[in-house]
């Protein structure tokens, strides 16, 4: 019986390590945090930010897997989801940028000026779409 548990543990641990590698490669290659850290002068705080990423993921993962209940009240939940939303928003924007969506559209339609308005439109569209989507889920 013990050997089976050991096999299970090794398989799960290896799975966790591979998923972490892939997941964080995605987050760091998509370049959200380089741009955010750039906003802080001197930009020598990258290790601190990386540590925050590490422990955020590890703790949240444990909370999810083991169903740990943490009473943070409604306000706390709002703050948590606000920052989650900011992160996902950055991720979506960065994904569009990495895939060169805007430069390609700009060249196809010969639009050079007024591109900030296009980006604004994308942002507003995303917010409205997210609201409608959540309303449809009955939130």
């Amino acid at each position: 019986m013990l050997i089976r548990y050991i096999g299970l543990a090794i398989a799960s641990m290896a799975g966790g390590a591979v998923i972490a590698g892939g997941y964080f490669a995605f987050i760091s290659l998509i370049g959200v945090f380089p741009k955010l850290i750039e906003k802080v002068k001197g930009n020598r705080h990258y290790m601190l930010v990386e540590s925050c990423l590490t422990y955020g993921a590890v703790i949240a993962n444990a909370i999810y897997i083991f169903n740990i209940e943490i009473p943070v009240t409604l306000v706390g939940l709002a703050i948590l989801t606000l920052f989650g939303g900011i992160f996902v928003g950055c991720l979506i924007g960065a994904l569009a940028e990495v895939l060169n969506v805007f430069p390609i559209i700009s060249r196809r339609f010969y639009v050079r000026r007024g591109f900030p308005y296009v980006i604004m439109a994308v942002g507003i569209g995303k917010v409205i779409g997210s609201f409608i989507g959540l309303l449809a889920y009955g939130l």
Binding site: K39, V40, G42, C52, G56, N61, I63, L91
Partner: peptide, 25 residues
């Protein structure tokens, strides 16, 4: 700068947690 850094750390900490949960589910 310090306020900005704290904000970025919060985005990193809670954002990474948020997205790993969304991946898991």
């Amino acid at each position: 700068q310090t306020v900005k850094l704290i904000f970025i750390c919060l985005v990193a900490f809670l954002g990474a947690g948020f997205s790993i949960i969304s991946y898991n589910s």
